[in-house]
Design a protein around this nucleic acid. Structure first.
Lengths: 206, 206
DNA sequence: TGTTTAAATATACAATAGTACACCAAAAAT
DNA sequence: ATTTTTGGTGTACTATTGTATATTTAAACA
């Protein structure tokens, strides 16, 4: 399913946001149907389900429990810094394309030291443990297409995002894991630098 | 009727605020009753009516429509979470005392999973590198005076804060470093658990 | 002492709200 | 040309939710 909204879905999402801002609580399906002159609640239910599937809102199985999670429609004038969490990368799309955005996460304001586009990536595997980057950590990445020697970067190799250390050995660059069990990666085909890791966020179980 | 709240009313108002902030929508009477171990919704209804009469909240005759209007309990629109960064601990003061607070740092909202007091601590030394905790990392700590076996905790030993793993070896607890170069710490004198590490934030140089 | 108020219980009930199913029509995608 | 998606109607069912009444207990009060 695409992440794009139809006109009607956008209209309904906007209405949910407006009503929520206005009243201070989320509308019911019936209230939404009334406002749009729709006779059946079920039509609303299906729109709302679509909005949930596309990641714009969240809801629980109870009355008035819709929450808007997409920053473009967010209720609060939050000064909170949120960046897109990039999930699996769909082949052919740039990493930051909307298709790849799983959800939005808030990050400490202090982590943004310079202008630019930022995104977050959940770390898979243990190839960087010697750099203190563990599986399921969230790395905060500043979008860039080049980096300096020894920077920890996010690269796109064979439609797969990977976190590695960039080694710039006079002209020929390669990727180095921070774990002796992993070999260096000398990409043969197309590959690209997607950004520079500028921060790390870890949530411990508790 | 007075504008002053009874203890119970204040407790309920605080709970409403907490639940609303947590879930993103107002609780039902039943949910409030459950949280307070009250068997009858009607007890809650009367409290809520009192809170309305006293001008602390507003509500409509429908599910989950409570709005907090009193500024002291308002749901902060700024979803930005800041917690105190504890620096050097001054002898004799509790860790969270104002004397020890260096500055405030913002942390990702997602890191706050349960109620309680939180603080941040800048990691000194490399005694926890095997747990992926490096020097100058910021650990986010939930204030607590006990913890479970194998939790990573912040302890106060000889007026010194330290991050270690708690080992609860049938009755006798001790602190374990996550670095083979460091010995276990079996505190002789007074020591205390200050909190549980629930998150980690690292800023990379760039 | 008797009275009032706050807090809670038990039970009941009607309106609301979410969900489900069958069905229809138009637009978009394949 | 056919299928899928989107958008909608109507009806029905069930759990949730707010509300109401009658009672009880304990604390505060005068």
């Amino acid at each position: 399913m695409s992440r794009n909204l139809t006109d009607r879905q956008r209209e309904i999402l906007t209405l949910i946001a407006d009503l929520t801002r206005d009243k201070g609580y989320s509308p019911t399906y019936q209230e939404l149907a009334d406002r749009l002159n729709i006779k059946s609640k079920y039509a609303i239910l299906k729109h709302v389900d679509s909005l949930v599937k596309k990641g714009y809102i969240e809801k629980d199985s109870s009355a008035r429990t819709i929450r808007i999670v997409h920053p473009d429609f967010a209720i609060s004038n939050a000064t909170d810094y949120t960046i897109p969490l990039v999930g699996r990368v769909a082949a052919g799309f740039p990493v930051l394309a909307e298709e790849n955005v799983e959800r939005y996460v808030s990050i400490p304001r202090e982590m943004i030291k310079s202008e630019g586009r930022y995104f977050a990536l959940k770390v898979r595997g243990d190839s960087m443990i010697n750099a203190g980057i563990f599986e399921n950590d969230l790395v905060v990445v500043q979008s860039a297409n080049k980096a300096y020697n020894k920077d920890i970067i996010v690269a796109l190799v064979d439609d797969e995002v990977t976190v590695k250390r960039l080694i710039n050995d006079n002209g020929s660059a390669y990727l180095k894991a921070e774990n002796d069990a992993y070999p260096d990666i000398h990409p043969r085909g197309d590959w690209s630098i997607q950004g520079k890791v500028v921060g790390l966020i870890r949530e411990m179980m508790h």
